[in-house]
Amino acid sequence: MNSIQRTATPPNRVGLSQAVGDAMTIAWRNIRGGWRVPDNQIYMFIQPIMFVLLFAYVFGGAIPIPGMEDDPTAYKRYLMAGIFAQTMAFAVAPASVGLADDMQKGLIDRFRSLPMARSGVIAGRVIADLANQVIVLAIMIVCGLLVGWEIENGVLGFFGAVGLLLLFAFAMLWVGAFIGLSVGNPQVAASAGLIWLFPVVFLSNAFIPTPTLPGWLQPIAEWNPVSAFVAATRELFGNPSMFAADTFASNHPVLLSLIWVVVIVGIFAPLAVRKYKAAATK
């Protein structure tokens, strides 16, 4: 009966292999349970298809790409990287809602009372949501190809772009984790996670060529972190891309994106872990 009981004095520190194991256990739980929730299925399978179709056909002809006015495929080729990046940014939502839900249901309290790694719950959330984002991205890429978007830069560029998009999602998941643990209520987390993202995404080069914006908005849009990821993705896919100004942002979008990943994770990962440590139900 007591075979499982611990006798030796337990260590006060958690090793790396345990931290990884705990994260994977939590990731398993998030994926396993998450797939049973209809909301998540809609988020993963319906929403990406809807976005691709909506943007490709509704805005498709309405926004001219400077210098390519006569090319009917230009906007689709331009646009798709923007939709991909937007959807990766929306990873904030499942992360913040998931953790806020765990907090409200008292699960975070239970996890915190277990001899598991402090990082396990957040890392497990990030791993699970990143895995889901891989599926979302795959669905979007297939849909994009079906509506006339093209990969114009070969296999290496393709994988580079996919990797960068997932890095973007990875960074945004930490932002989501921080928001979710801060608000602690899934309803609030759902809106708090996304409300600020819409203006940020729309004030970027995701859907409109920045040279068509009013002059004072151009630098804001071109230095917007989202624009860095979108431009880098376009460059790696070989899709049309353009900037109004000749700056570091326009010349080195891939490098700038990688810097942003480091900055975002560097800020929000410690903040999220700190919130977790101090988290209290209600």
Partner: peptide, 30 residues
């Protein structure tokens, strides 16, 4: 705290279990 956690069992005032998992999966997880 980590040493304490590995020696205690806690059942809080409100049941803290994962609704999306089965009973067996919950116990396996913990």
């Amino acid at each position: 705290p980590q040493a304490v956690r590995s020696l205690i069992g806690l059942s809080g005032q409100y049941a803290a279990v994962d609704e999306t998992l089965t009973g067996r999966e919950n116990l396996w997880l913990f």
